[in-house]
Design a binder for these strands. Structure first.
Length: 575
RNA sequence: CGGGGUGUAGCGCAGUUUGGUAGCGCAACUGGUUUGGGACCAGUGGGUCGCGGGUUCAAAUCCUGCCACCCCGACCA
């Protein structure tokens, strides 16, 4: 492609809305363009890179035997009613009505649609296992779209669904997908980790998230250098601190005026925060928006609550639980904001972090204004309706698997795989017949890759102060041939020859034949992040050009033929 | 949804405090001079000042309602 004919528009300055490097450079390179908040369009170069990620994904999916189909983004509400998710999904689901007032949604994911296809088209064990996938636009009305393609309301996703006869089959399908995902992200040039994840609203009982490491990532992972433990911080189990070896002292109420926070009460009573109990007051809401149940969760004062573990313990969807309106909860349960403890509550479910059962002589709120209790002991003074791990993991906490210090890192969730089991086949009635004509539920898995988010993750990991540096497999073009003086006959002829030879070698080449100053062309080539630049300039008459990989600081002087050979080799080695 | 901020030309911004009929840089167009890291000179075009209502002789500027966008938080297959 000749740049003189191509529609590109690089920006000298970043639009004010862009905060992180991937967003800045994708906008400045003119690869993407915002339409409204969380909705982006792809310009010629951006769309080429998107298609490359799609193609890599497609190749790796096909290699596992998965088959590509294409379903509509518009989905009838009935299917979501059947699975039970029409009401579970919450406001993130983009709901629309047709002219007859019938309910539809713009698909945020396609479990229902694929289950529906398979239940009507698969009836025999001979048709299983089956893995169907699509690359398609998804819609999620995010509460807060952010960082360009990173968290957008419309995005391209590859979603695959596996259908097996039994759990052993699912294990195999899951492993195949997991390994395919490792190949996809490796080919995209990402530094990533696969970590254990919570399966959330997807249902199912096992999940891994593929996280591209990046400081700006919204996903936080915990991992261990001494063993292979790696999990999202939501998921990571936290080892309880060892039980205290202390005699139980008599329960006492003490006056603690104005100490509404753990910091304040610990300071006032001169106690370490580890000797205090923190109360988190929550409400579970029903579908009508009213309070269904009040919940008080107790964890050690120095810990933080892990909301995911809490809602899992309650068995409710995450958006149906939230911090309670204090006044209403005080009236209903006898708690006192800032002074709530596990002793003295009523009409309220009590969740206790397992660690507290081993702690002796703790300080907790007394459910009485300006008062705390000391020497509170589990078993003797209070009990939990549920006792489980409710705490968030911290850097340095002992690894739940081996005890070595845990490390934390941030990243971008570019893919996730789930073992769904029979959640959807059971709710929607997807069966197959075995060789005795007996019906069995199909065992399912689902597997997603955020294609456009992957593009952003790659940009986030591959840029410098001058612009993008695309890994060859996802670069919009491989080589850019820059003509320093477009009106110099020797230069333009040599550049044309090099350009032609590159194309003949099946290298995707750009020819910058624009009537621009050299500096403009160099700046643009750098911003666009084309992996190799061949500059045809002063020494064109001698047949000498400059060869420079984008990631290198210095250029090499080579003969034209050598430069073509070198560029061709560079690209082939990395594809 | 809560808190904060911003809306003025394609992009980045000034002007708003103290009302007087809109400006700068970049980009675009024309001509000339330049020509190896975002050139220079001269000229040109482009704006319902987010939208609606109000105050006023006069509103980008003051009052008011709404909308959009961004950031933090809540939330997030």
């Amino acid at each position: 492609m000749r740049l003189s004919k191509m529609h590109i528009n690089t920006l000298r300055e970043a639009p004010a809305e862009a905060e992180i490097p991937s967003h800045v450079w994708l906008l400045r390179s003119g690869m993407i363009r915002k339409l409204v908040s969380g909705v982006y369009g792809f310009m010629p170069l951006g769309y080429r890179s998107v298609r490359k990620i799609e193609e890599i994904t497609r190749q790796e999916m096909d290699a596992t035997g998965a088959q590509e189909i294409h379903m509509s983004a518009i989905q009838p509400a009935e299917l979501w009613m059947e699975s039970g998710r029409w009401h579970v999904m919450g406001p993130e689901m983009w709901r629309v009505k047709d002219r007859h007032e019938r309910d539809f949604c713009l698909g945020p994911t396609h479990e229902e649609i694929f289950t529906d296809i398979v239940r009507s088209e698969v009836s025999s064990y001979r048709q299983l296992p089956l893995n169907l996938y699509q690359i398609q636009t998804k819609y999620r009305d995010e509460a807060r779209p952010r960082f360009g393609l990173m968290r957008s309301r419309e995005f391209v996703m590859k979603d695959a669904y596996s259908f097996d006869r039994d759990w052993e089959g699912l294990d195999k399908s899951y492993k195949d997908m997991y390994e395919a995902y490792e190949r996809v992200f490796a080919r995209c040039g990402l530094t990533f980790r696969a970590v254990e994840a919570d399966s959330g609203a997807m249902g199912g009982n096992a999940s891994h998230e593929f996280t591209a490491l990046a400081d700006v990532g919204e996903s936080e992972i915990a991992y261990c250098d001494s063993c292979d433990m790696a999990a999202t911080t939501e998921r990571a189990a936290v080892k309880d601190a060892p039980a205290a070896e202390e005699a139980e002292l008599p329960l006492e109420i003490v006056s603690t005026p104005g100490t509404k926070t753990i910091d304040a009460v610990a300071e006032y009573l001169e106690l370490p925060k580890e000797k205090t109990i923190k109360a988190l007051l929550l409400a579970v809401y029903g579908e009508d928006g009213g309070v269904r149940e009040y919940v008080a969760a107790f964890i050690r004062g120095d810990r933080e609550l892990n909301m995911t573990k809490l809602v899992n313990a309650l068995g409710v969807p995450e958006h149906m639980a939230a911090f309670a309106d204090e006044a209403a909860m005080e009236a209903a349960t006898g708690c006192v904001g800032g002074f709530t403890g596990p002793v003295g509550l009523h009409d309220c479910k009590i969740l206790v972090d397992s660690e507290l059962t081993g702690m002796k002589n703790m300080c907790a709120g007394a459910c009485k204004l300006d008062c705390h209790m000391i020497n509170v002991n589990y078993g003797r003074d209070y009990k939990g309706d549920v006792v489980t791990d409710l705490k968030k993991i911290r850097e340095g906490d002992p690894c739940p698997a081996c005890g070595a210090p845990t490390r934390l890192a941030r990243g971008i969730e570019v893919g996730q795989v789930f073992k769904l089991g029979t959640k959807y086949s059971a709710s929607m009635g997807a069966y197959y017949k075995d060789d005795n004509m007996k019906d069995h539920l199909i065992v399912m898995g689902s597997y997603g890759i955020g294609v456009t988010r992957t593009l952003a993750a790659i940009a986030e990991q591959h840029h410098d102060e001058d612009g993008l540096i695309w890994p060859v497999p996802v670069a919009p073009y491989h080589v850019i041939v820059t003509v320093v003086k477009a009106d110099d006959k020797e230069q333009s002829e040599l550049a044309e020859r090099i350009y032609g030879e590159l194309l003949a070698n099946h290298v995707e080449a750009l020819l910058d034949d624009r009537d621009e100053r050299a500096g403009v062309k160099f700046k643009d080539a750098d911003i666009l992040g084309i992996p190799v630049r061949i500059t045809v300039g002063k020494k064109a008459a001698e047949g000498v050009v400059e060869y420079k990989p984008r990631a290198e600081k210095k250029a090499l002087e080579l003969g034209a033929a050598e430069a073509v050979a070198e560029a061709t080799r560079f690209i082939r080695d990395r594809l």
